[in-house]
Amino acid sequence: MKESAILFKNVSRVFSVRHNDIAGTVKAVDGISLDIRDGEFFSLLGPSGSGKTTSLRMIAGFDRPTSGSILLYGQDVSNLPPYERDVNTVFQDYALFPHMTVGENVAYGLMIKKVSKAERQKKADEMLDLVRLPGFADRKPAQLSGGQRQRVALARALINHPKVLLLDEPLGALDLKLRQQMQVELKSIQQRVGITFIFVTHDQEEALTMSDRIAVFNLGKIEQVGTPAEVYEHPATTFVASFVGTSNLVSGEVAKRITGSDTRFSIRPEKIRLGSMSDKIDADMVSADGVVRDVVYIGLFTRYLIELEGGGDLVVVEQNLNTTSMDVMKAKSQKVRLIWKKEHVRHVEG
């Protein structure tokens, strides 16, 4: 196993808040331990207010832990200011310096290090090439599009060759097409420069696409850490199951009728096959009968809402292999048998 790039040891961050003269505290990060390895593309995934951004800010040094410690390649950096950490950040709003040209922005880190002007320019041009913005050095940030600013911010953060690069929802402001293109590009840049990337996002699809591993945050705690496949296929908690992808969550009486146990389980909509009442059930299969209540045709696939006989609903997604929108609509109000493999049933906590 590779060495740790970032190690969180039982880190908490408590903010004191005052609202309408009532003072209180909020635990933004609540006793987190986390090990991010060298060279990883690691995502911190969670809804807003889940503690992922605070965690990132503590790695960057903009915030300090209330308790616990953060190690950067073995060195305790919990109380180092940002300028003494070998970590750089791509900000959500890019934070380009409006009074400087693109070239000066990119070379800023080198200027602070007192690198000669000629050397600075050369390096800045190299970085602009890397992010595919050659010849933009003399423009002002205000003259760039959102996607271009994003690339400048990336070039600026990479020029110091940090040990770890932090990305705070950098793709949030871009439109869908550009976002997908940047996802691919970020990944390839990461592989080329070989730096550990820590990526904060609330977009589960983005996290699944890009990451080597993902930490799912909720309410200041980490719910699960794992590869995209692990997190998707084996959600450890109810929260992960519902936040990452869509899941049917079944519990209580309904669960007992299907699996024989009343422990709560999750089943992904795409794992369920829509069969007819005469279909036989194999030993490694599970089934439930119900009536199709709703059909939504979405082109690539169709989504069905099934009302189960014993109560409760299940969502089923089927690829449109050879059906048309006319065909799928006929399924409405039909009695159906839902069949899926036992191994896809995930018992979840909470």
Binding site: R64, N79, L80, P81, Y83, E84
Partner: peptide
């Protein structure tokens, strides 16, 4: 200067 800056940054 770095040390002065850090002194204040942490306070």
């Amino acid at each position: 200067l770095n040390r002065i800056s850090t002194f204040f940054y942490l306070r």
